[in-house]
């Protein structure tokens, strides 16, 4: 296996496979990040500005606020699960292809 020092990083950067990985990953991470942060910050914002909504009882004495706070756990886990599926199923595979392709090349001097 070639030494990392010999890898032409600019060439990898310009490679279409790497650009495709970069595009897919960037979009996916932005979507997940914006979604999870929005969902989370609705909790303190809602508690502060819409307490009357949080007070509505839904299930026995359990109100919107409590169930919404509990749903935060489910959503955080779901985001993590979603990311894991995509990362192991797609990003890892693409990254491995790139690593193999560039390590097989003759070291450039």
């Amino acid at each position: 296996m070639a030494d990392v020092k010999d890898v032409d990083w600019d060439a990898v950067m310009a490679d279409s496979r790497f650009q495709s990985l970069r595009r897919k990953k960037t979009i996916f991470l932005w979507v997940l990040m914006v979604f999870s942060m929005t969902y989370y910050f609705v909790l303190p914002l809602g508690a502060a500005y819409f307490p009357h909504v949080f007070q509505i009882k839904i299930w026995g004495v359990l109100n919107v606020g409590l169930l919404f706070a509990l749903s935060q756990f489910v959503v955080a886990w779901a985001v993590a699960f979603c990311y894991e599926r995509r990362a192991s199923g797609q990003f890892d595979v693409l990254a491995k292809e790139i690593v193999v392709a560039f390590h097989q090349q003759e070291p450039r001097r």
Binding site: V7, V12, M13, V99, H103
Partner: peptide, 9 residues
Amino acid sequence: YVRQNTGMG
């Protein structure tokens, strides 16, 4: 950027 994404090296 390549290394942080691919783990090369």
